[in-house]
Every structure is written in structure tokens, then in C-alpha cells.
């Protein structure tokens, strides 16, 4: 359960104050599928960063599962990011010198898990995304779609409640983009809260809840049709 109330986020650009987020109040239920759309500069990425605790609101309260997370210390926020939130980026952000398996292992290392507990979980996460035979490949030996699947494995290996995806298909061709979205939707079907920023209306319209942003405000909200069950499309 995500609750934002009266969130403001201001940036100082020269002597001008830019309201990246202007009085945003929003509640997202656990297991929901939300897309955030809007033109660039509308504040959708800022909202996502804020939800992921990568950014702090200038004012307002953010409650995650009933807990006021804006009041937490750096270390506690890092722990929340590690345990309860998964990130998927447009640029994948895999560490180039690490293999697929080692990239997936990173959040577990940061969680301080001993190696014997990490290995089965990494193997499981890679297996789920059909990457087992790629686990020792470096990112530059993988295709774009495979890289994003490694990134998704990394985001979900800690079994978070919330998955935040920032233009997850932005750097992929149509087919692998579709593939990635189906994987994300599949994860959502199994109870993961999925929040996806996109400027592609076709992608965005698949979400159960569609938020539109303009000039830092929530502009309009549409309830979309239930997404297709991914398994039907798979040949």
C-alpha cells in the first residue's frame, strides 16, 4: 500500500523554482498495475524516483505499508530500497564487468546474505526469466531483451512488494519490448505492485490504472481494461 499525500518537489534552477511535483496525492493498493504517462518534463520520473526513495519530497508525507518512509534515516531508507522495492531502468544499468548471475546477486550481497543462501535464489531468479544458460555471460554478450530480463531478475531477486519500471521498453525493439512487458505483467499477476513510467500510449493503456501527469500534477486518471494474460500470447 502506497500513500502519497500533498507531495511537493521543488528544484531550484537559477533563481527560479521549478515545481516538478505540485501537490500530488495518490494511493496505490498492493498488487495494483499502474502506468504513469505524460509528456517529458511533466514530473513522471520524479514521481517514480520519489516512490523508490531515490529522491526526497520537499514537503508532504509518503507512507509505504503504513510507515512514514520520508522520516527514515539514510541507512533505513537504503534497507527499504533493498528489501521492498525493485527497480527496472530504461538503460538497464547492469554492471558491465559482472556476469548476469553476479549482477542478479548484487542486491543480495548488499543485504548481507551469506553465499550459500544467495546461490539458490540467484539460480531461481534466472531460471524464472529463462536466463539459466546465459548466467555466465557478460552484459555485452547479451541482447537488449536479455539484458532487461537480467535487470528484472535483479529487481525481483530480493522478493520486493513494489516494482518500479522507468521506460522499461524504451531501449528495446518492439518484439523484445512486448516480451519484457509480458514478463512484468506476469509478475504483477502474482501479486507484485507494478508501477511503470512510459510515454508510449499503447504500453500505458495496458495498465489497470493509468495516471496522466502534466506540469507536476496528476492530470487525469483512467481505468484501463484488464491486461491480457501473457500466457495466451506465447506461441
Amino acid at each position: 500500500m502506497i500513500e502519497l499525500s500533498h507531495i511537493h518537489r521543488n528544484f531550484q534552477v537559477g533563481d527560479q523554482t521549478v515545481h516538478a511535483l505540485d501537490d500530488v496525492t495518490l494511493t496505490i493498493k498492493s498488487g495494483d498495475y499502474v502506468s504513469i504517462m505524460g509528456p517529458s518534463g511533466s514530473g513522471k520520473s520524479t514521481l517514480l524516483n520519489l516512490l523508490g526513495l531515490l529522491d526526497q519530497p520537499s514537503s508532504g508525507i509518503y507512507r509505504l505499508n503504513g510507515k512514514d518512509v520520508t522520516a527514515l534515516s539514510d541507512i533505513e531508507q537504503a534497507r527499504v530500497r533493498n528489501r521492498e522495492i525493485g527497480f527496472v531502468f530504461q538503460m538497464f544499468h547492469l554492471v558491465p564487468r559482472l556476469s548476469a548471475a553476479e549482477n542478479v546477486e548484487l542486491p543480495l550481497i548488499l543485504a548481507g546474505l551469506p553465499p550459500e543462501q544467495r546461490r539458490p535464489r540467484v539460480a531461481e531468479a534466472l531460471e524464472e526469466l529463462h536466463l539459466t544458460d546465459r548466467s555466465h555471460h557478460k552484459p555485452d554478450q547479451l541482447s537488449g531483451g536479455q539484458r532487461q530480463r537480467v535487470a528484472i531478475a535483479r529487481a525481483t531477486v530480493t522478493r520486493p512488494n513494489v516494482l518500479l519500471a522507468d521506460e522499461p521498453t524504451g531501449n528495446l525493439d518492439h518484439t523484445s519490448g512486448q516480451d519484457v512487458v509480458r514478463i512484468l505483467e506476469d509478475l504483477n499477476q502474482r501479486g507484485l505492485t507494478l508501477i511503470m513510467v512510459t510515454h508510449d500510449p499503447e504500453m500505458g493503456s495496458r495498465a489497470r490504472r493509468q495516471l496522466h501527469m502534466l506540469d507536476g500534477r496528476l492530470d487525469a486518471e483512467l481505468a484501463g481494461q484488464a491486461p491480457d494474460t501473457p500466457r495466451h500470447d506465447t506461441p
Binding site: G52, L54, D74, I75, A78, R79, V80, R81, N82, R83, F87, M91, H93, V95, L106, P107, L110, A111, R154, T158
Partner: peptide, 16 residues
């Protein structure tokens, strides 16, 4: 920079 940002997003504390 990107790698350090990523580590933070994955839950690395400043101490780590």
C-alpha cells in the same frame, strides 16, 4: 557514477 547510483538504488547505504 552510474554504478554507484545503481548500488544505491539496489539498497546500498552510504556506509556500504
Amino acid at each position: 557514477t552510474a554504478e554507484i547510483g545503481l548500488l544505491k538504488a539496489l539498497g546500498a547505504s552510504p556506509r556500504q
